[in-house]
């Protein structure tokens, strides 16, 4: 087990689904590879050096590519929502779903180490949701999403994947999403993007959440945005509040644009 965050393997549980589920009609692709063998003889030890040249995450990346084509063929825009714990991901998502649901098809995959509390909150809006408990794992991976998406039977809509609250580990694991959306709340530090640069570098959009609290805080939003752009000059930024609705229209407008772009490229 990881001594820093407790990350471990082998305890993933998909809500109400056997972990051995296989997706018969969509077999995961074999991870393709090439290698040139370079052998250096060492007669004394019989040891020799073999060239491998494989990305360590190649299996996850191959499954993510499989998910991506699966999403495209089902006309699904998949978004990977990432933040630190407590940034307000679930509250913002519930508020987003309530605004989207009258006219849009949506579904949610919820990632948490334990409990189905978040999926229960999502289902209360009427949106289908499936909870993935990662056990000791500190992030969702592409295999978990492949299984969960198979259970959802979802097409023609927006799939929100709420990752485990963690700004470090989820940055490295492609799930097959069209975009990562990072949520940073104004109750955190302005230097979050510099402390966790990989996540902000990997995200297309930063939602600055809880902006209704700004009058009560000594928080410099412009500094947060400048720090995010230091690690990712192209990142889009929208300031939102799930409490008073500020910025929600701009966020929904961004979603419309992302759906249009995804359909154009499908």
């Amino acid at each position: 087990m990881c001594g820093v965050c407790g990350c471990g393997e082998g305890e993933t549980r998909l809500e109400a689904v056997a972990a051995t589920h296989t997706h018969g009609s969509h077999p995961p692709p074999a991870a393709g590879h090439t290698h040139a063998e370079v052998v250096r003889d060492d007669p004394a030890q019989r040891a020799h050096l073999v060239s491998v040249e494989r990305d360590i995450l190649s299996k996850n990346d191959a499954l993510a590519a499989h998910n991506r084509s699966h999403f495209n063929s089902h006309r699904v825009l998949a978004l990977n929502l990432v933040s630190s714990p407590g940034a307000g991901k679930t509250t913002l998502l519930v508020e987003t779903l309530e605004r989207l649901l009258p006219d849009n098809t949506v579904a949610v995959i919820e990632g948490d180490q334990e409990t189905s509390a978040d999926a229960d909150r999502i289902r209360a809006t009427g949106a289908p949701a499936i909870q993935v408990n990662t056990g000791k794992g500190c992030h969702l991976d592409a295999a978990m999403i492949d299984q969960a998406f198979g259970q959802l039977h979802f097409h023609d809509g927006i799939l929100f994947i709420e990752n485990v609250g963690n700004l470090v580990c989820p940055a490295g694991f492609d799930l097959g999403e069209a975009h990562k959306v990072v949520i940073a709340s104004v109750t955190e530090g302005e230097d979050k993007p510099l402390k966790y640069p990989n996540m902000f570098a990997a995200s297309s959009l930063m939602l600055v959440s809880k902006v209704d609290l700004l009058p009560h805080l000594d928080f410099d939003v412009e500094l947060l945005i400048a720090n995010a752009r230091r690690v990712n000059p192209a990142i889009a930024v929208i300031q939102v509040s799930a409490s008073n609705g500020e910025g929600m229209e701009r966020w929904l407008h961004w979603l419309d644009g992302a759906v249009a772009m995804a359909s154009a490229s499908a």
Binding site: C2, C7, E9, I56, L57, H139, G172
Partner: peptide, 14 residues
């Protein structure tokens, strides 16, 4: 700090 998962993949490759 997902190095356990990464090393699990690494050992899989090996």
């Amino acid at each position: 700090m997902h190095e356990i998962a990464l090393c699990n993949s690494l050992v899989g490759l090996i």
